[in-house]
Amino acid sequence: MSEKFVELRKEFLTKLYKSTPSEQTSRSEKETWLEEKSKYLGEMTRELNEVQDQIAPYDRRVCMEQLVDLTRRLQQIRHDILPRQPFRFQRALHVKSSQKPVKNITVNAEAPEVYFENDTLYLANLKNQNIGDNVIPYPNNKAVKVSAKSLRSCNISISNCSSVNLHNATKCNFTFPTIQGSIHLSDINDSTICVSCHQFRLHHSTNLRVHLRCKTSPVIEESKEISFSYKDEHPILDFTWARSDPSPHFRITSDLFDA
């Protein structure tokens, strides 16, 4: 029984958190969803009651405690998604609502962004752009964090960085001669990267030329056709290649940047 109870409880929790109605869901749909979950809980309680003579007192107590916990979680969700409506007289329903209609605000997801805030340079949705140190308002070459996504055919060069996060770039050139911390790259394709950093992480990328200096072992995952120019002592680790022979996903060459 206790195994079955564990399964039921897991299923209930998954349903409870994975399919929680969003704010946009109508009140009636939320009520139906909550009613379903209450019924499920009722069913679990009934099943436990039916077999309670057959299970050990300790197991019974644990199961009961867990049921109480589940009920509390459901109540919390009910409280969050379906707060009790404030009390008002029935007549008030006839009074015309004075609420103004909310304007539909359309946000252009593709709007290019270049801005500097909280020591961080944010770049997004750029095409054919050259970004250098001139966008950073600090006169004393202080280290900044770089956070960039969705770049096409751009040249990015920042001389002093604390850390760099790049996501989704194609046909770009990146130059970061000093990164005090880590560089994390994901979804980068057909690009050139020239970087000196403490930690190097590369995920889901293809066809890159990387000139790298790194103080710890660089890590690549789910990437292929990566050419490294790399001479440091710590080996490059490919976490998607567990075999002892060399990974086919990357190669180390010395003549990458000679031209």
């Binding site: 564990v6 409880r9 897991k10 929790l13 998954t14 958190y17 961080t120 604390s162 996060n165 911390g181």
Partner: peptide
């Protein structure tokens, strides 16, 4: 705290843990 691009991935991974029996 510096990796704002992966905070969503971080949240999803943590939430998967939190519902583990």
């Amino acid at each position: 705290s510096l990796d704002d691009l992966r905070l969503e991935e971080c949240r999803n991974t943590l939430q998967e843990l939190l519902v583990e029996e």
